[in-house]
Amino acid sequence: MPLTRHKSAGYMTNWAARLFARVIDRKLKPLALGSGYLPVFFALSDGGSRTQKELALGADIEQPTMAATLNRMDRDGLIIREKDQNDRRITHIRLSDSALAHAAQIKTIVDQVNETALSGLNSQERQVFLEALTKVTAALSQADDPSK
Score class of each variant (00 low, 15 high):
L100Q: 09
K27T: 00
K107M: 09
Q142N: 13
N86C: 06
N14M: 06
L78D: 10
L44G: 00
G77T: 00
Q105F: 07
S35N: 10
I90G: 01
I109Y: 00
D87C: 06
L19E: 14
K107Q: 14
R126M: 09
A68I: 03
S98Y: 04
V40N: 05
L44D: 00
K135L: 14
M66W: 05
L19S: 10
H102Q: 14
Q85E: 14
K83A: 15
A101Q: 08
I80E: 14
H6L: 13
S49D: 10
R72H: 10
A67S: 15
Q85S: 13
G34K: 05
L28C: 02
G48P: 05
A103C: 07
A138D: 13
A16V: 02
A16I: 02
A139M: 07
G47Q: 01
E131D: 15
A17H: 07
D144N: 14
N114G: 13
P64I: 03
A99G: 06
G47F: 06
R5F: 15
R5Q: 11
V128K: 06
A99P: 01
I79N: 02
E54P: 05
P146E: 15
E131M: 10
A16S: 03
H92D: 02
R50Y: 04
R18W: 04
L31Q: 03
S35P: 09
V128Y: 11
L3N: 11
Q105H: 12
